[in-house]
Every structure is written in structure tokens, then in C-alpha cells.
Design a protein around this nucleic acid. Structure first.
Length: 930
RNA sequence: GCCGGGAUGGCGGAAUUGGUAGACGCAGCGGACUCAAAAUCCGCCGCCGAAAGGUGUGGGGGUUCGAGUCCCCCUCCCGGCACCA
């Protein structure tokens, strides 16, 4: 090599080393993914970035994790695919356009070019030939194509949707652009508007999306739980209370039926009232001519809909004065408006059974003077079983009066149950101790249903309701269809043409893609496409008359719902994906932030199933294994300004103050020595000024240091606390490796055979192989922090190998050569996924081979791990007292005898007798005395 | 409020899944080199104690020869959420 000069230097010149390694990989196209069918495949995918301008630390962490996995699997003998691309449509490009008057296309392209350079400087083993950007027509053409197929199948459809409308800018706002009910730019009060839009029928796949979570053992439990909750399946009974309530025109409302949904139909005989949402037609009707009720309804509509806010909120309601008829008992039941009933879920109305629903109970407690007495209709099965046994024994006539207050025992409850309803005290505690019932309950006080357990009761009641045409069993989903229309410019055009004669006409396939004009500069006053005649005006594909193009674009979640499949395919202009896709898919390892646990992952799963049903792909689930990496945190420093605001200081602008325990107490600014407060660790963000720029990190320490620290500081799923001195420590380690290697030029070439190795060398060799064993175990667990520390341990061990130079000119011991040669080879390979540049350079320079990428992954050798003597720890009554060294095949009796005669043990045996001796082979001996 | 995950030195974090608690690193302290500093290297480093020893994984109880690890109760912290009938 002509660049040997760098390697001869004992100094670690990372910039040159990294550039040369990257050049080497790029010259040889080292990371082009190929499937030869002989090796197993490994598709490793990190969530693609939004090209916001430059990388942040979260990206560095995410992509380093992916790269470590990719490089490790490559050396294990897999064909690896690790692609990269750009989630390039979205609102920030439009905001930048408004600010800088640059077209979003230009802004996005420039950002991509810069960020690509940054990614390359980190040395990721990416197949750049598969790079894609979702804002390019050759990509989004297939969004449009699949959308049209969904339209044909009835999966996509049009209906009106509610949007946030800014009356000043005359534009639709995204939720994030609404700040405290006002438009972010204009400050105008935001209005709700109903406009038409396209929806995708994800609810048609609800059952599959829920059931197939079981096919994902490689996903974190919490992500699966979140998805299951989001899909929100509940099975129950939908039924109607009948009524004769008429509107102001005298028309019977909703055919005289008040529909409700319940998962607890077995408690139907315990209904004491009904509650409807504020927006429910019955509530609206009752509000006519009832100012008090109208005011209450208005108040309900204003309240927060967030669960956390609501959980502690007082349940409130008001009687509408309306009555409905119970479908089974014929009793008249009052209809109330309840602030805890949501119009958007189920029927917007509920039956209220205070005895067996905590919310209903809270409500009934508050309005007990206006509502009928609560009615218990189920009790735990175990209790009923108990009661029956008691009755057979002819017992059970005690009174409710319990001498000492406290919760009733089962026995006491049983004795008093007949009088419990009259004497029930209205507290949540007594409700919980008496009524709260699970589904293992049995009906009581329910006429013909008495004695039926949950499932049987629901079946019988559903059958009776069905016989009257007033109800049936039903599955209710929380999941709603996915609205994909966005009234924005920088997105994929929805391929529809509006014709006065023919209505909404799909763009024919041969006219795809509908290209987004790229020279627009949004000015904040709505979608510029609306003003672009060259885009809007077109010809109806059906009748040939002049027509208008749809100007809405698609939600950017569409773009990211299938990019992984495109990566895995040849980028054909004629097909969304090709046969190669099904060879690479599913993704073997997907890595990204937990913030995408619900929407992105659910939409991708849905999209995959749609593609599968259209015969495009052959997999049910796109991501076999999911790793959700933690966030990157840094110190936050702030102080109150004179004006009462908060001013933030970057960590490099302050000096820390520690308390007596060495904990950070506060800090002072380096500039003026003023005191600032330490706010703890928080996510790196611009607003808190605690971000660290990856670029300056790479320039100062190199990519390998950045990568090493990212892996070393915390396990991947946990948050990672930034530490400048931690980065320095990582850098120090890499310098030490370099210096150690520089002292052993050409050591990789020595052809040594490990035969007779003296003890002193064997001991360290064993330590190295033991550490390697642990590291390989940790890699399987994806616990990279201990893999990084294992590489440190191996270097520590290598530096301890006795060099035993016998004198000037004397050769060093062959045992030394062997252990260092082998140990360094293990260290370089083990470290190479984390620090690929340094290890690449040293592998070649020390003569181990041409390319560490094609070296096999190191495995510990049994011969190196074997030992003739083992150390056993000795405990007396579980406390560590001594240790002995015994032959590895020493038998139990032998060990016991050795232990009991050990001086360090005997002093604990005086005056007591040995009861038992426990020998854990290879580990320890516990002498139990007493 | 509900669901999920946690709590181990001054700090980040280990502990091969019930078997020597604190690996590895950071910070700190002491020393070597240096005119000096930086860099580098060597040593010490949970707490109490002069030592012997004792004690110690958020708190309390339990199972076990043995518990950071398993079980029950409690406290606090973080993440998620939908008053879901």
C-alpha cells in the first residue's frame, strides 16, 4: 500500500483512516446486496429519515445499531441488505418554503445531498444503489397506482371529514399547526369544517391486524399491547331501548329506538338509567327549550377528550326528561346526558348499571337523589357457590350490622345480602367490596336469567333481544378508517379527476404518475396547486370534456407504508415491486423510535396485507423483528430572565457545581459566572439548546469514536445520556488499540500453532476466549454495550500478557506471540461492526488479511476455555468465607473433605454442627451449619 | 385513573437468567514521566470501621442451603392512553 505512512504512525489519525476505508468500500461496491440463494438472507432496516437539514444524534444512534447488526450478520455468513432512503414529503418543506422562498423540491434535494454525505462519513454499510426518495415520481407513482386498485376494491372511498380551517389564510391546518385553538401563523380562531376526502378501509383488516400480532414474537410486548389497544376490539351486544320521542316536526326519532352497545349484557336487568353523549340527537332535541340543558351540553363539548385529563374529572350529567322503555322489562328508564359518554364510540349512548360499572356508579353516587336505587344483578360465581352450600347447611340469617366497621367478609356479605341493597352506603370502597364483579359472575335478581354465568347470560339475553328485533351480538372496534386526503402541496397527488358529467374519475393507469409540479413556493395561504391552472385543468378520461384535477395530496404515512418493499425490489418503472421483494422480505430486523409504535407500524402492516391480497407480495407481516431504540438525552440548564421567561444554556456554556455527595446541584455560565439551574436530563432539542451536532463530533473524534460511544453508553432500548467525558473515554480506548497495534507490526502474518502454551499465557488466552463467549452471547441479545466493554476487556488482557524479553536482541516468547496474534485478531473482528474503519485499517496493516469484511466471525475455542484446575468459592450459611482451587475433575467427596478441613472455614465450624454441604459444580460450595 | 417499563456506588451501567454484587467506562484521589502543563502510564476507589469484621441492589414481608434475580404488599420515577360502555 502506498499509504503505509499513516499506519506506521503510533498516533491514531482517524480522519485519514476513515476516509481511506470509506474509499475502499465504495471502490469495491462492498455493500451491494446480492442474493445467491446459498446463504441465508438478512434484511436489516432502519426507519428512513425525514430530510430536515442535517442528522441529529437520534439518527446516529438508530443507524449505528442497524449497521452493527448488518456487519455482524455479514460476518456470520448472511447475505445482508441494508438500504437507506428519504421520507421526503411533508410539512417542514412547506414551512421552509414560506420562510426562505425556496421551492420545497429544491430545499428537500439539498437537504438529502447534505445528509447523505453525513451518513457516508459515518461509514454505514449501506447499499446506496437502492436509495430512494418518496418525493420522486418514480416512487410515488405506485402510491397512486395502489390507491386506484384500492378504490376498485372498495378499500378506498370518499366521505366528508372534519378539518381545522384557518379563516384568515383560507387554509386547512394540521393538528400541530393549531396552537391553543388558533392558527399558528395568523392567530385566528380555528373553525371546524366538513370537507370531502378519501379514506382507506383499514377497519376491514382490523381482525387480521389484531390476530396477526401473535405472529410477531420478535416485537416488544409493549408495542404489541399498544397496537392491540389502538385496534380496540370489544365483543358485546348492541340493542335498543324503544321510545315514542318525536322531533319538533312530529317525526319519530330514529324509528323510536335508542341504540346502545354493551360488553356486559348480562347486567341488562340492572339498568337504572341511560346516558347519552352531548352530541346525541336525543340530547339535542331535549336541549330545545331547555336553556339549562343546552348550557350543560355546550360545556360538555368544550371539555378535553384526553383520557388522562378525564380520569380524575367529575362525572357530570343532567336529566333530559325523556323516557325510554327497557326492551326486556318494559320499565320506563330516564335518559340523561353524561359528560363521560363519547359520541364517537359505539352508539354515543350507554345503558347505565351503577351496580356493576364503576363510571356508572360514580355517576349514580353523585345524582342518587334523582335516580332510582341501584340494583345488583350479578355476583361472583365463587360467592354464589358458597351461598348455595350455606343454604344446604341451613345457615345464614345474620344481619348487615357489622359490630366493627370494615369491609364485609364473604361470610358477612352472604348473610346480609338480602338487605344489602337497601342499606348500601354510597362510597366507592363499599362499591368495590360488594358489587365490582368480573366476568366470572352469575346472574341474580334477573328473573329468568338467574343462575346463568356470563357467557350463557349474554347468549340468552341476546337471543331474547333478537327475537324482538331489538338487538344482536356485535363486535365493536375502536380503530377508525384512515383519512388520507391532505390539503397540502408537498405530497403525492391523489390521482382523481373531477368531471362535471362523469363525477370523480380515476386517472387511467397509463397516465400515471400524476406528477407534482416542483417549482411551486407555498406562501401559507393554502395549497398552491389550487392556483396552478396548468396542473388543475385537464381532460376527463371518460368523456373527453374539460375537467379539474384533484389538488389534495396523500398523507405522508402512505409513503412510508411500503418503502421497505421497494428497497427489496429492482426499481422497475413498470411494477410496484418484483419477485426479488419476496426473497428479501420480510424485514428481518426493523429499528426505529418508539414514537412510531402505533401509526406507522400499523399502517405498514395494513398496506402489506392489501398488497398481499392483490397478489403483489407473499408475506403477511412486513417486519419480523422490531427493535425500538431509546432517545438521546443531554443536560438541560436554564434560568429565569428578568422578564419572567426561561432562558436555556448549552452544556458547553456552563460549569457544573456539585453538592457534598458529588451530585450536580447547579451550574454557572462560563461567560459571566451567573448561576443557572440544572433541569435534569432531557431529549436533545433545539429549544432547550442541549443538542450535540454529530458533524462536530465526527470532526473532533471521528466516526468510530461516535459509533463506539453510542453503543457503549447504554443498551439500545434504553435512553442514552450524553457525556462529553464518555466520548473522550471512548476515543482514548481507540487510541490505545492503535498504539498497541503499532507495537506489533506484522503480527497477523505469523503462522503460529497453539500447542504447548505455558500457564501464564494460557491464563490470559482463556480470559480472552471467555470474554469473547460473553460478547457473542450479548450480541444475540442485542446488548451492544457489553459487547463494547468486552472489546475493552480484551485489550486490557492483551496489555497484561507478560512480554518476558530475555534481553536485547533476544526473541520474545512464542507464547506471547501466539496470544497476542490470536487475541488481536479476535479483538479486531469483534470490534469491527462497531468501529469498522479502525479495524479495517489494522486488519490489513497487521497482515491478518485483505479485508476484515470477509473474515469469519470469531468463536471461542474449547481448547482455550479448558482448564485443569478450577476455583471454588466457599460459603458458610450463604456467606462468602474462602475459596479453594481444585482439579477440574475433583469429585464431591473430595471437595467436601477439602472444604471442611480448610482453615478459613474451620473457624466458622466451632461449636456448631455441619448440617449439609451443597456443591454447585464448577462454582461454589455452601456449608450449612447450625 | 388504567396499561406497560423501571429503581443497583458520586455518574452511565454490568451480573452468562437462583450461585463471589458493582464487570467495563466516566468522575475522583495518590504516584511516575516533565522545568511545567497537556498527553501517557501505574496504583486506589460501595458504605461504616484503625483493623478484625460488619453492612449493602427503593421500603417491608416471604420462598430457598443461597435472592439484585422468584412471590406478596408499599413508595417513588419514566413511557403510553381511549371516560371505549
Amino acid at each position: 500500500m502506498n499509504d503505509t505512512d499513516i499506519f506506521m504512525q503510533p498516533q491514531y489519525q482517524f480522519t485519514e483512516i476513515e476516509q481511506q476505508a470509506q474509499q475502499y468500500w465504495s471502490d469495491r461496491n462492498s455493500f451491494a446486496a446480492r442474493l445467491d440463494g446459498k446463504k441465508p438472507k438478512y434484511y436489516c432496516l432502519s426507519m428512513f429519515p425525514y430530510p430536515s437539514g442535517k442528522l441529529h444524534m437520534g439518527h446516529v444512534r438508530n443507524y449505528t445499531i442497524g449497521d452493527v447488526l448488518s456487519r455482524h450478520h455479514r460476518m456470520l455468513g448472511y447475505d445482508v441488505l441494508q438500504p437507506m432512503g428519504w421520507d421526503a414529503f411533508g410539512l417542514p418543506a412547506e414551512n421552509a418554503a414560506i420562510q426562505n422562498k425556496v421551492p420545497p423540491a429544491k430545499w428537500t434535494d439539498d437537504n438529502i445531498a447534505y445528509m447523505k454525505k453525513q451518513l457516508q462519513s459515518l461509514g454505514f454499510a449501506i447499499d446506496w444503489s437502492r436509495e430512494l426518495a418518496t418525493c420522486k415520481p418514480e416512487y410515488y407513482k405506485w402510491n397512486q397506482w395502489l390507491f386506484l386498485r384500492m378504490l376498485e376494491k372498495g378499500i378506498a372511498y370518499k366521505k366528508t371529514q372534519t378539518v381545522n380551517w384557518d379563516p384568515v389564510d383560507q387554509t386547512v391546518l394540521a393538528n400541530e399547526q393549531v396552537i391553543e385553538g388558533r392558527g399558528w401563523r395568523t392567530g385566528a380562531l380555528v373553525e371546524k369544517r366538513e370537507i370531502p376526502g378519501y379514506y382507506l378501509g383499514i377497519t376491514q383488516y382490523a381482525e387480521q391486524l389484531l390476530a396477526d400480532l401473535d405472529k410477531l414474537p420478535g416485537w416488544p410486548e409493549r408495542v404489541k399491547t399498544m397496537q392491540a389497544n389502538w385496534i380496540g376490539k370489544s365483543t358485546g351486544v348492541r340493542f335498543a331501548f324503544t321510545h315514542d320521542i318525536r322531533d319538533t316536526a312530529g317525526e319519530l326519532i330514529a324509528d323510536g329506538k335508542l341504540w346502545v352497545f354493551t360488553t356486559r349484557a348480562d347486567t341488562i336487568m340492572g339498568v337504572t338509567f341511560c346516558a347519552v353523549a352531548a352530541e346525541h340527537p336525543l340530547a339535542m332535541l331535549a336541549a330545545h327549550g331547555n336553556a339549562e340543558l343546552a348550557a350543560f351540553i355546550d360545556k360538555c363539548k368544550q371539555g378535553s377528550v384526553m383520557e388522562a385529563d378525564m380520569a380524575t374529572m367529575e362525572k357530570e350529567g343532567m336529566d333530559t326528561g325523556l323516557k325510554v322503555t327497557h326492551p326486556l322489562t318494559g320499565e320506563q328508564v330516564s335518559v340523561w346526558v353524561g359528560n363521560y359518554v363519547l359520541m364517537s364510540y359505539g352508539e354515543g349512548a350507554v345503558m347505565a348499571v351503577p351496580a356493576h360499572d364503576e363510571r356508572d356508579f360514580e355517576f349514580a353516587k353523585k345524582y342518587k337523589d334523582q335516580l332510582p336505587a341501584i340494583k345488583q344483578v350479578v355476583e361472583p360465581f365463587e360467592l354464589q357457590d358458597y351461598r348455595e352450600r350455606q343454604e344446604r347447611l341451613g345457615k345464614g340469617n345474620a344481619s348487615l350490622n357489622k359490630p366493627n366497621s370494615g369491609p364485609l367478609t364473604q361470610n358477612e356479605y352472604l348473610a346480609a345480602s338480602d338487605s344489602v341493597i337497601e342499606n348500601f352506603s354510597f362510597t366507592t370502597d363499599s362499591w368495590k367490596s360488594i358489587y365490582a364483579s368480573t366476568v366470572t359472575s352469575v346472574c341474580i335478581n334477573s328473573g329468568k336469567y338467574d343462575g346463568l354465568r356470563y357467557e350463557d347470560a349474554v347468549d340468552a339475553i341476546a337471543a331474547d333481544l333478537a327475537a324482538k328485533s331489538l338487538g344482536e351480538k356485535k363486535t365493536q372496534w375502536r380503530l377508525r378508517d384512515w383519512g388520507v386526503s391532505r390539503q397540502r402541496y408537498w405530497g403525492c397527488p391523489i390521482p382523481i379527476i373531477h368531471c362535471d358529467n362523469c363525477g370523480d374519475v380515476p386517472v387511467p393507469d397509463d397516465q400515471l404518475p400524476v406528477k407534482l409540479p416542483e417549482d411551486c413556493v407555498p406562501d401559507g395561504s393554502g395549497n398552491p396547486l389550487n392556483k396552478l391552472d396548468t396542473f388543475i385543468n385537464c381532460v376527463c378520461p371518460k368523456c373527453g370534456q374539460a375537467a379539474k384535477r384533484e389538488t389534495d395530496t396523500m398523507d405522508t404515512f402512505v409513503d412510508s407504508s411500503w418503502y421497505y418493499a421497494r428497497y427489496a425490489s429492482k426499481f422497475s418503472p413498470d411494477a410496484m415491486v418484483d419477485a426479488e421483494t419476496s426473497q428479501w422480505m420480510p424485514v428481518d430486523q426493523y429499528i426505529g423510535g418508539i414514537e412510531h409504535a402505533i401509526l406507522h407500524l400499523l399502517y405498514s402492516r395494513f398496506w402489506s396485507k392489501v398488497m398481499r391480497d392483490m397478489g403483489l407480495v407473499n408475506y403477511d407481516e412486513p417486519f419480523a423483528n422490531l427493535l425500538t431504540q431509546g432517545m438521546v438525552l443531554n443536560h438541560i440548564f436554564s434560568r429565569r430572565t428578568d422578564k419572567g421567561g426561561i432562558e436555556y444554556f448549552a452544556p458547553e456554556e456552563v460549569g457544573l457545581i456539585y453538592d457534598a455527595n458529588g451530585k450536580i446541584e447547579g451550574a454557572t455560565t462560563l461567560a459571566d459566572g451567573q448561576r443557572v439551574d440544572f433541569q435534569g436530563m432531557g431529549t436533545m432539542s433545539k429549544s432547550k439548546r442541549n443538542g450535540v451536532d454529530p458533524q462536530s463530533l465526527i470532526e473532533q473524534y471521528g466516526a468510530d469514536t461516535a459509533r463506539f460511544f453510542m453503543m457503549f453508553a447504554a443498551p439500545p432500548e434504553q435512553t442514552l445520556e450524553w457525556s462529553e467525558s464518555g466520548v473522550e473515554g471512548s476515543h482514548r480506548f481507540l487510541k490505545r488499540i492503535w498504539a498497541f497495534a503499532a507495537e506489533h507490526p506484522g503480527i497477523g502474518q505469523a503462522g503460529l500453532v497453539p500447542t504447548e502454551i505455558p500457564q501464564e499465557f494460557q491464563k490470559i488466552r482463556r480470559e480472552i476466549h471467555l470474554t469473547l463467549k460473553q460478547a457473542n452471547f450479548d450480541l444475540k441479545k442485542q446488548q451492544f454495550n457489553t459487547v463494547a466493554s468486552a472489546s475493552m476487556k480484551i485489550l486490557n488482557a492483551l496489555e497484561r500478557v507478560p512480554s518476558q524479553k530475555t534481553g536485547i536482541g533476544q526473541p520474545i516468547h512464542s507464547g506471547y506471540q501466539l496470544v497476542v496474534q490470536e487475541g488481536l485478531s479476535i479483538l479486531l473482528r469483534l470490534l469491527s461492526p462497531i468501529c469498522p474503519h479502525l479495524t479495517h485499517a489494522l486488519w490489513v496493516e497487521l497482515g491478518y488479511g485483505d479485508d476484515i469484511l470477509s473474515a469469519p466471525w470469531p468463536e471461542p475455542l474449547e481448547a482455550a476455555l479448558a482448564q485443569d484446575e478450577i476455583e471454588l468459592v466457599i460459603q458458610v450459611n450463604g456467606k462468602l468465607r474462602a475459596s479453594i482451587t481444585v482439579a477440574k475433575d475433583a469429585d464431591r467427596a473430595n471437595i467436601e473433605q477439602l472444604v471442611l478441613s480448610h482453615a478459613g472455614v474451620q473457624k466458622y465450624l466451632e461449636g456448631v454442627s455441619v448440617k449439609k454441604v451443597i456443591v454447585v459444580p464448577g462454582k461454589l460450595v455452601n456449608v450449612v451449619v447450625g
